[in-house]
Design a protein around this nucleic acid. Structure first.
Lengths: 323, 323
DNA sequence: TTTAATTCATAGCTTTAGACTATTGATAGT
DNA sequence: ACTATCAATAGTCTAAAGCTATGAATTAAA
């Protein structure tokens, strides 16, 4: 407490140099300083510790008992500093670390799986944690610095966040096989007569649907509310009703089932999805790379739908729809 | 290698202060420096590590991923320096450490046992190692810094040693029960006719005896040579011959045996025993205390002989001698 | 929206202390 | 006794660590 001066790493480095050389003069050479400078530092160290570290015998300087004891500690200290610097370098190279992100549950379903796959391939030692949460919770968590990144609806309401738009999600109507709906696309206002299975109304997606409907003067008939998009899709499959969900999500989920996808228009219900992070929050290489992978993965997904569908996936889908 | 500037403990201390407070301003208070000084040091640290350690969010400063990683290392470093300082303090208090001494085998027999006992009582955690060696070897080992202290004959021949006289050892003649020698004291020159069991002639003690004899113009009749004083005493007990050994040693060894102690005079053969250490060699508290204990223990031993003998031990001895 | 308060960074200046050269004193080896 | 080596000391210089004052940015309150 009362000490005015403290040990410094420099002194430990000099000390170890002398201990290794057994000689102040050569120790100074090794430490790349002059011999007097080294002597002063060693003396300061000895003074602070309260015991001589070397016996200055004419020919060589030998460690005292205290010196031997101190050497072991000093070596550990220096080693630890080197380890510290190295581990930071490793982290910059994103070879380790921890990345916690939040994602909308719909996005979580189709974007995250291939994304995680690629990410893990690139950064096998980064501990990645993905939370499927509603947009509002994600925003809050990112703002509170509990999440590194968030994938949520835009625009974000919290102004402490910086956002970066990723893509536009289009909503489509999903109908079960039994329903007699031959149209490939229907107007928004025509939703009024259909029984819908939707998310609870504290979800952004639900709110958006309500808002879109209000714009064209209709109130959707909500027959059932469920919290999980997957569950909703399953319910629709059972014939509970129809639902409205993001197109990408639906297309990647209906697989071999008999569900039909019906486009909505006038207007087309859509919203932007983007990545959000806390302003002034430094993003590590892993996080930056994660964002980049979002875009490339998304690009690949879009291709699967804007181009490939006419050849591949639609064959599955249409066959299922045809029946 | 190429780096011009190095991490310093000061920076780690400041870093930990900020990490703990989550705030540069309060961290500066904790570190007892101004906030700008702290900012500069943290910036330097971040610059050297190549990654930001804190995210400067408006309200508080939060550790980055790199910061969290670095904190663990920094804590270990600081902890280790504290341990180092503490262990040196402990050593100064002689609560631990290692003390290696050399002692003449005769001295080793009577002085060392009680000495070690007292020493261990005072410094239970000091690893004490005692080597029974001839004076010349001890001198050499102390000069080569392989021994911390040496108990040997004075004067020491090596001028790199500093010596401190402890006491004067007087040599006495020891005779077995069977010999017809009634005198309590005999002249040195009378040794000429007696068969002696002595140490080999590379021992200082032997050399001294030879020298003393030469002074009075006699050559001792050496019937047997043995390297260990204890062995010699045993041989004498078996009737192999007489011997000449340090009085203190003999008195503490003949116990209940029938050996007789006969004083020598004209001149009285004696030599100084002292403690030697290497010049400029710093002696730890344990070593210093060991020397002090030599003197006090020796004082107690002398008392046992200069005063107690008339009452106690001599009764045993005389009875044994009378027979 | 404006205002006030926090908080960290920057700039300029002061002072500390680490580093260098030159020298002395001491020791060891010739 | 002489020489060489080595560590400590003295004196000077400079780099950097510290402080004060100030500015920019953000948050909280009015």
């Amino acid at each position: 407490m009362g000490d005015g001066i403290w040990m410094e790493l420099r002194q430990l480095r000099y000390f170890l140099a002398v201990a290794e050389c057994g000689n102040f003069t050569r120790g100074a050479e090794k430490a790349a300083i002059s011999q007097p400078s080294l002597s002063v530092q060693i003396a300061a160290l000895e003074d602070e510790l309260g015991a001589p570290l070397f016996d200055r015998l004419g020919r060589h300087a030998a460690l005292t008992e205290a010196g031997r004891l101190f050497r072991d500690h000093a070596q550990r200290v220096i080693r630890e500093t080197e380890l510290a610097a190295q581990s930071i370098r490793d982290l910059i190279g994103a070879e380790q670390g921890r990345l916690v992100i939040g994602a909308l549950s719909t996005v979580n379903s189709y974007l995250i799986p291939p994304l995680v796959c690629r990410f893990k391939q690139q950064f096998p030692h980064v501990h990645l944690q993905v939370h499927a949460q509603p947009s509002s919770i994600i925003e809050e968590a990112v703002a509170a610095n509990r999440l590194d990144l968030g994938l949520c609806l835009l625009p974000a309401t919290n102004d402490r966040l910086i956002t970066s738009r990723l893509f536009t999600e289009t909503l489509v109507l999903v109908s079960p096989p039994g329903i007699r709906l031959t149209a490939k696309r229907i107007r928004m206002r025509d939703l009024a007569t259909l029984p819908l299975v939707l998310l609870p109304n504290d979800y952004c997606l639900r709110k958006m649907i309500e808002a879109e409907c209000a714009l064209v003067g209709v109130r959707p008939q909500v027959s059932v509310e469920m919290t999980s998009p997957e569950g909703i899709l399953e319910a629709v499959k059972q014939g509970v009703g129809l639902t409205i969900l993001p197109e990408l999500f639906v297309r990647h989920r209906i697989g071999g089932s008999l569900l039909r996808v019906i486009e909505l228009y006038d207007p087309v219900p859509r919203h932007d999805v983007g990545v959000v992070s806390l302003a002034h929050r430094h993003l590590g290489k892993a996080a930056q790379e994660f964002v980049r992978l979002c875009r490339t993965t998304l690009g690949d997904l879009q291709i699967d739908h804007d181009h490939a569908p006419p050849q591949k996936i639609p064959s599955d889908v249409s066959s299922a729809v045809d029946r």
